[in-house]
Computed example of a mutant assay.
Amino acid sequence: MPHAAPAGFQHGLTLDAARTIADATLAKGRELGLAPLTVVVLDQAAVPKAVLREDGASLARVEIAWGKANGVMAMGLGGRELLRRSTAMAGFVNALSDLTGGRAVPVPGGVLVKDADGAVLGAVGVSGDASDKDEVCAVAGIRAAGLAPDTGDPA
């Protein structure tokens, strides 16, 4: 018998989609020859759905990736827009980081995951290489799952 969600709860980002995103993100990093990556996939409640840390990834990469994903979920904006806002409103973004226990890292590599209708299903954070390269991998992972990435820049 298939599992039915309790009344009022939506599944949003499935475990299968989160696994596809995480695996494809790391595969893109290997394809590009990047430093070892860490990927965190959060669901619509900003709860970790998948966390993978490649062998050789440096210290604190899980926390950084989680901060990238959580920051975009907290504000509903992709990492590039958060970066722009951190420059324009540094005090606000510092307060956001404090309010989230340090889990708001406003740089590329934090990408919202959306469905075909634009509904936010979760977020991906990637850390390990340059932020722009981390973002390329997150976008590839999200697309591999058949979902739409939102980096904070116009498509």
Rank of each mutant, 00 (worst) to 15 (best):
M1Y: 09
P2W: 03
H3S: 11
A4D: 14
A4M: 14
A5R: 13
A7I: 13
A7M: 13
G8H: 01
G12Q: 01
L13H: 02
L15C: 05
D16Q: 10
A17G: 06
A17D: 04
A18L: 02
R19L: 13
T20F: 04
T20K: 05
T20E: 02
I21H: 04
A22T: 04
D23S: 12
D23E: 15
A24L: 12
T25I: 07
T25A: 07
T25V: 09
L26W: 08
A27S: 10
A27V: 10
G29S: 09
E31L: 10
L32W: 06
A35G: 06
P36D: 06
L37P: 00
T38G: 06
V40Q: 03
V41W: 00
L42M: 11
D43A: 07
D43P: 08
D43F: 02
Q44E: 14
K49R: 15
A50P: 03
A50T: 08
R53F: 06
R53V: 12
R53D: 05
G56S: 10
A57F: 01
S58E: 10
V62K: 01
E63H: 11
I64L: 10
I64E: 06
A65N: 04
K68M: 06
K68D: 07
A69D: 03
N70I: 05
N70A: 13
G71H: 05
V72P: 02
M73Q: 15
M73L: 14
M73R: 15
A74D: 07
A74H: 11
G76F: 03
G76E: 08
L77R: 12
L77G: 05
L77N: 07
R80H: 10
R80M: 09
R80Q: 12
L82V: 02
L82C: 11
L83M: 14
R84A: 15
R84P: 10
R85T: 07
S86L: 04
S86T: 10
S86I: 09
A88E: 09
M89A: 14
G91P: 03
F92Y: 15
F92L: 15
F92H: 15
V93I: 15
V93M: 10
A95H: 12
A95D: 04
T100F: 00
T100V: 07
G101C: 08
R103Q: 13
R103D: 06
A104W: 00
G110R: 01
V111D: 02
V111R: 08
V111T: 02
L112V: 04
V113H: 00
D117K: 13
G118P: 03
G118R: 08
A119G: 10
G122D: 09
G122Y: 00
A123I: 02
A123Q: 05
A123W: 00
G125H: 05
G125Q: 06
G125N: 07
S127C: 07
S127P: 04
G128P: 03
D129R: 04
A130I: 14
S131Y: 06
S131I: 08
S131F: 08
D132Y: 03
D132Q: 13
D134V: 12
D134N: 11
E135L: 14
E135H: 09
E135W: 03
C137T: 03
C137F: 02
A138M: 03
A140K: 08
A140N: 05
G141R: 00
R143Y: 03
A144T: 04
A145C: 05
A145F: 02
G146V: 01
L147I: 03
A148W: 01
T151K: 03
D153S: 13
P154V: 13
A155K: 09
